[in-house]
Simulated scan of single mutants.
Amino acid sequence: MAGPLTLDQVDIALLTALTEHPRAGDLELSRSTQVARATVQSRLRRLAEAGVIADWDPTLDVAAAGYEVQAYVTLEISQGALDEVAADLAAIPQVLEAYVTTGSYDVLCRIATRSHPELQATLVRIDQSASVVRSTSVMVLSTLVAPRVLPLLASTEPPPSRRAPAYRA
Rank of each mutant, 00 (worst) to 15 (best):
A2K: 04
D8Y: 01
Q9T: 10
Q9G: 09
D11Y: 04
L18C: 05
H21S: 12
P22I: 01
P22F: 01
P22S: 06
A24D: 12
S30T: 05
S30V: 04
Q34W: 11
R37S: 04
R37F: 07
T39S: 09
R43C: 01
R46L: 09
A48C: 06
T59N: 11
V62E: 08
A63P: 07
Y67S: 02
E68S: 12
E68W: 05
E68T: 14
A71C: 02
V73H: 00
S78I: 09
G80Q: 11
L82R: 12
E84G: 09
V85C: 06
A86D: 15
A87H: 13
D88L: 11
D88H: 15
L89P: 03
A90N: 09
A91L: 03
I92C: 02
Q94N: 11
V95M: 06
L96K: 12
Y99C: 14
G103E: 01
S104K: 15
S104E: 15
D106W: 06
V107C: 07
L108T: 00
C109N: 09
I111E: 00
I111F: 01
T113D: 05
T113N: 06
P117H: 06
E118Q: 13
T122P: 09
V124I: 11
V124W: 07
I126M: 00
D127F: 00
S129M: 02
A130N: 05
S135G: 06
T136W: 14
V140S: 08
S142Y: 15
A146Q: 08
P158V: 04
S161H: 10
S161Q: 12
R163F: 11
A169F: 14
